[in-house]
């Protein structure tokens, strides 16, 4: 009997662009059938990991396996088992939907009747069969995404790797796209996606939070939120440092000032709120009480806000 092997196994991956460390000792496993998200701001390293897992970039050190095959030494085996949805569609806009799908299928060794049957099946499954003869350049962004997904599913991959799949889509198209993704997930296809969108991340079974090349947290979205054990109070106030000091001293709360904004965690936040108004009055410009979000988890784990702070730096390094 064969030993259980995760569909994705990342073992101590490290990658450098020159002297810049893009990934610093990343390890995790993804079991088959899971929807796994790589969440992080631009420049956090998730796109580098995307390139490594899609065989486009050999890591500086460490190893990664897809369905038991090494992404560096067994590229062809890995490539035949993955479908890749790129951030910008890998479609030829001068060809029709059907032509794009037929070209895509032939690249995976599909041909003749088998290819025709598969094209017909995916266009129906993704509800694009009525546009099969339309030029891709005439399609909306949401439809292009679906055609891209159809192209990736032709060879029935075990793992679908998606790079910021809903970037640039309107809210309706996002919801639709996720419905189709979920259907494939329910059929046992493993989904691994990079995202910097919290709502998208919330839909994953498990998440890996990335910051500055490090994996800072790993778990189910709800599990991660429970790490922030209290409700969150966010305060924008005049003289934030002074207010934060008084808060800590008088209300026994964990308080941080991040980018000029006071962030406090309390189990009795609702009771404390009126007292805060009474004490600080007009010094408070705005105050928000919320259940912890993934953004709060990120702040809790890293000590800074979820912002695309590092991308410029990384691009320069490249």
């Amino acid at each position: 009997m064969s030993r259980f092997v995760p569909i994705v196994n990342v073992d101590n991956i490290r990658h450098l662009y020159g002297s810049h460390v893009a990934l610093d000792g990343i390890s995790f496993e993804v079991p088959a059938g899971e929807c796994f998200g790589l969440l992080g701001p631009n420049g956090s390293g998730k796109s580098t990991l995307f390139k490594i897992l899609t065989t486009l970039l050999p890591p500086s050190s460490g190893s990664a396996f897809v369905a038991g095959h090494n992404v560096v030494t067994q590229r062809s085996d890995v490539r035949s088992r993955i479908g890749v949805v790129f951030q910008s569609p890998s479609l030829d806009i001068h060809l029709t939907v059907r032509e794009n799908l037929v070209h895509g299928g032939r690249l995976y060794g599909l041909s003749s009747e088998d290819l025709r049957r598969r094209v017909s099946a995916v266009t129906q499954a993704l509800n694009i069969d009525d546009r099969a003869n339309a030029l891709v350049k005439t399609l909306s962004g949401g439809l292009k995404r679906r055609v891209e997904l159809a192209k990736c599913m032709l060879h029935e991959p075990a793992l679908l790797i998606l790079d910021e799949p809903c970037n640039g889509l309107d809210p309706v198209a996002r919801v639709e796209f996720w419905q189709y993704l979920t259907r494939y997930g329910n059929r046992g296809v493993t989904l691994l996606l990079t995202t910097h969108d919290m709502d998208e991340a919330d839909q994953c079974d498990r998440l890996a939070l990335f910051d500055r090349g490090k994996l800072v947290a790993l778990g189910m979205p709800d599990e991660l939120k429970q790490r922030v054990s209290a409700d969150c109070i966010t305060i924008v106030a005049d003289d934030a440092a002074l207010v934060a000091g008084e808060l800590e001293a008088n209300f026994k709360m964990t308080v941080r000032v991040i980018d000029g904004v006071i962030r406090a965690e309390s189990r009795e936040a609702a009771t404390i709120m009126p007292q805060l108004f009474a004490r600080f009055g007009s010094r408070i410009r705005s105050i928000t009480l919320s259940k912890p979000t993934l953004g709060d988890v990120f702040m809790h784990e890293t000590g800074h806000r979820f912002a695309n702070h590092a991308d410029k730096n990384v691009e320069e390094q490249r």
């Binding site: 030993r3 092997v5 088959a32 035949s80 037929v102 032939r106 690249l107 060794g109 060879h155």
Partner: peptide
């Protein structure tokens, strides 16, 4: 490592002629 996933139907290799022709 042992491959536990059912991949027997995905062992197709596209060769040279098909991809080149497309």
């Amino acid at each position: 490592m042992t491959d536990s996933t059912n991949l027997s139907d995905q062992e197709k290799r596209p060769g040279l002629i098909g991809p080149c022709g497309t």
